[in-house]
Design a protein around this nucleic acid. Structure first.
Lengths: 128, 128
DNA sequence: GCTTGCCTTGACACCGGCGGCAACGTTTAG
DNA sequence: CTAAACGTTGCCGCCGGTGTCAAGGCAAGC
């Protein structure tokens, strides 16, 4: 399979696939003319990459999942390294959510205060 | 007040202040030697900028708050434009939190599944 | 006059996952 | 033979707030 076909089947671009290869996430042999030749298995790898990216992982985070697939496992998340990343990411997400909640509360507070202040000073002109 | 003093008092860098000025967020006169001269009031403006940046606003979002302060209000958030930004940001934060929750659930699910699978296949080697 | 420390503008670097273009080789269909 | 459609490598751009450096002007104390 050449790069164009893989890109189309994976729903991405050739540019992206070359980028992944450059960063060691996917592999290819080379045909005599220099064209990349991909195994069928790479399609699955690309899907794994894409779905993890969509969740917010970066390419470094994804590397263990790809390795896990290459090791012959049915899914990329059952290997220890992948599990470690999952744990770390879960913690990150939780932390992010906490910060976001704090921000949300602050914004909410600021908003209600500002509106209250406006009503107090402006005698509100919008329809009641 | 010159730029170095303002930077020190605001707890930021001269580079940052020039950037804010370049983007119309703070103002200065020029002394005869070409040095920037800042009013005391700008210190407050810089504080407003910094605290909103810390919450996750970008410079464009912050502009109305600065204008509100310049209009003579005690805080930057009581003007209609500021309130509009607060509302929009609050909505954005809520949306972000929803996505984050979905991601969290997916990660949690994936993690527990992966661990379950490992226990099933590996007969767990860690201490019980 | 010389050093030290402030100021000026301008420009490059960063981060990360690509998009897009240039300049060129290969294959295939007409 | 030629055009079209594919492939190759390589490099710039983006986004946004800053760090950082260069090359130079100004102020003040010795």
């Amino acid at each position: 399979m050449r790069i164009g076909e893989l890109a189309q089947r994976a729903g991405t671009s050739t540019r992206t696939l070359r980028y992944y290869e450059q960063h060691g996430l996917i592999r290819s042999r080379r045909a005599t003319n220099g064209y990349r030749a991909f195994d069928e298995a790479e399609l699955r790898v690309v899907h794994e990459i894409r779905s993890l990216l969509a969740v917010g992982f970066d390419l470094d985070d994804i590397r263990p999942f790809v390795a896990c697939l290459r090791a012959g496992h049915a899914t990329g998340d059952v290997c220890p390294d992948s599990v470690a990343v999952l744990r770390r990411k879960l913690a990150e997400v939780d932390a992010c959510r906490d910060r976001l909640d704090a921000v949300r509360d602050q914004l909410h507070h600021q908003l209600t205060e500002a509106i209250a202040h406006r009503e107090k000073t402006c005698l509100r002109r919008t329809a009641p």
